[in-house]
Design a protein around this nucleic acid. Structure first.
Lengths: 211, 211
DNA sequence: GTTGAAATTAGTACGAA
DNA sequence: TTCGTACTAATTTCAAC
């Protein structure tokens, strides 16, 4: 349904497509990790780094690609060098039942690099890259404002991108697993007052269906 | 200073490093566009798609890499398949003068895939990918809350990633250019009431220095 | 900045463990 | 399934134009 992935927010998972095509073992994960670090590595070198034969590496590589676990290979660009020095986040409140229209309009805006549906005060967050601040203003006031689906926006500039990790996998995953439970006993020790979880606004669920 | 790029938010640019190593022409941009779509394309095929000779393509390819215009090549992973089905955004308010410490702690959290300093109500936005909702809770209450630099957090879940574009370049740029000015005459026609630009909180500038 | 030929490396197929 | 090898095709390098 979506061009990208879809997250189940409930721990139990949602009905629909839970079935996974390919069961990923540790070697698959290791391959993914290497490929995130260096998307242009040769399969031969990949095989060596992962510790499997070349033939096996080709098989698994293709399987991961075919299965969709690897969505695409891409180059990370320095947008400043490329002339798009300004990055902004625009939080959008979408009028209910007009989500489809909103998506269609998004597709016509090449400045938009990323868009996610979120819980919380707003319905979506879009990230845009443009050449100057004026372009952000134009984008928001001329383009977004003219979309009937857009009820309101809130714009924030990105001053600096501190971190973008190309790896989020195997060892990390084990770490996340062993850390999952301790939250219960630790809860009392923590100043909970300083955090805030923001739930979905009313009618948010509808957004995911009529897209 | 930062691992990634740094944006100048003022239109005039900021003092520091404005000088660009490599002047990018249209062919450079076209190369970048192709490489964003397919990071594993051979240089030979790249040359053909861009319409230049192999040798030229190799030269430019290396130049872009050396110059840093291409930061890295990476594989885009389907995080759901990889076992990290939950994505969340955590907006963090950082205690002034403790930015450095915050960054150091970030480096120790593999779940964090992206972090940007922003204007607006909060100081930073981090994106995390974990295996279940409990892990988000753990992350926020156990790890982030225990960092003295963190004054407050606000967490939002990503329900769906609608769009992630691997191209943001040449034709797009021209489009952005021709659209830059019309904003002035169009301003009156637009319901400005429905948008809101959020400026930097007081003392935000300090964050960018002591990092 | 381009073409073409040599050297290297990548991708495929297949039999054996 | 995975590995090892041999075979074929492609890519990269390097030279001369």
């Amino acid at each position: 349904m979506s061009e990208i992935s879809r997250n189940g927010v409930s721990g139990g998972g949602q009905p629909g497509r839970i079935g996974i095509g390919l069961e990923l073992d540790d070697i698959h994960l290791k391959i993914l990790e290497v490929l995130r670090e260096n998307g242009r590595i040769s399969v031969a070198a990949l095989a060596e780094r992962v510790g499997i034969s070349r033939a096996n590496a080709y098989t698994r590589f293709e399987a991961l690609r075919a299965d969709g676990a690897i969505k695409r290979f891409t180059a990370e660009i320095d947008h400043v060098r490329a002339g798009l020095g300004i990055t902004a986040l625009i939080f959008v409140t979408v009028r209910q039942q007009m989500w489809k229209q909103f998506r269609a309009e998004l597709a016509r805006m090449p400045e938009v690099e990323y868009c996610a549906i979120t819980t919380g005060q707003h319905d979506a967050m879009i990230q845009v890259r443009v050449s100057d601040v004026a372009a952000v203003h134009t984008m928001v006031t001329d383009r977004l404002a003219n979309i009937p689906a857009v009820k309101a926006t809130e714009t924030v500039f990105i001053l600096d991108e501190v971190l973008r990790r190309p790896y989020v996998l195997p060892s990390d995953r084990d770490q996340a697993r062993s850390q999952r439970r301790p939250s219960q006993e630790a809860q009392g020790d923590v100043p909970l007052g300083k955090m805030r979880f923001v739930g979905a606004a009313e009618g948010r669920a509808a957004l995911r269906k009529d897209g």
